[in-house]
Design a protein around this nucleic acid. Structure first.
Length: 213
DNA sequence: CTCCCGATAT
DNA sequence: ATATCAGGAG
């Protein structure tokens, strides 16, 4: 690990001292899987509002697998993209029951074969359920990793591999949590609060903007 | 590269 | 009324 990366990680650790915790509420592995499918293009807060009722109504994997499509669409409506998500949840839970004995698989390959599960969702499962070092590249991680010069690619899958090369494994899971906190409070997509940013000294974007003045 | 979509802030 | 939020599939 380079000195630069080490300093960035140290500053993140100092700023975000809280225990590692997933922002999505869940009790079982399959609940996290469904919550994460719902979280596509939707805030975690919104997903938690929906899953609070959803997991009380559908208490088992079987209940989701044989859910009525239209009814499930209504139940998850406020998370957006509800046609796709409802269809995916039913297909996904059916696969879980038919092929995996009701268990959530562990490998990226198997996870990403599930309906509605891409690399981001698969890595959320691997990190939280199986405690496998994995880097979740969501919109915050993508934007901020680029600004910090830790990644250059556009494709999230490629960024994941760039980050795997540059970040030590012990930080992989935590990195996503810290970056999300950072992205939601300081490093916004449009108008980041650079003046009060504790990482501006490491920011490519900030230097570029300074150079223009 | 396009389509899928609602909620909240401004 | 419009901008912003924030992944996966075909």
């Amino acid at each position: 690990m380079t000195k630069r990366v080490k300093e960035i990680l140290t500053l993140l650790d100092e700023e975000y001292t809280t225990e590692y915790k997933c922002y999505l509420n869940y009790e079982t592995p399959w609940q996290l899987l469904i919550a994460t499918i719902l979280s596509a293009q939707c805030t975690d807060e919104r997903v938690n509002i929906v899953t609070k009722d959803l997991f009380q109504k559908y208490t088992t994997l079987e209940a989701f697998a044989k859910a009525d499509l239209k009814e499930l669409e209504r139940d998850i409506h406020s998370t957006g993209f509800y046609h796709n998500k409802a269809k995916n949840i039913i297909a996904c839970t059916k696969t879980l029951l038919e092929k995996y004995n009701g268990q959530v698989p562990q490998s990226i390959e198997e996870l990403t074969k599930l309906a509605g599960v891409g690399r981001k969702t698969a890595n959320v499962i691997r990190g939280n359920i199986f405690h496998e070092p994995s880097i979740v590249v969501d919109t915050h991680v993508k934007r901020i990793s680029k600004r910090l010069g830790l990644a250059k690619e556009e494709n999230p899958d490629k960024i994941e591999f760039e980050l795997m090369k540059v970040l030590p494994k012990e930080h992989w899971i935590l990195y996503n949590i810290q970056i999300i906190a950072f992205g939601r409070s300081i490093c916004f997509a449009r108008s980041p609060k650079c003046k009060e940013c504790f990482l501006k000294g490491y920011c490519i974007e900030y230097k570029r903007k300074q150079g223009k003045k």
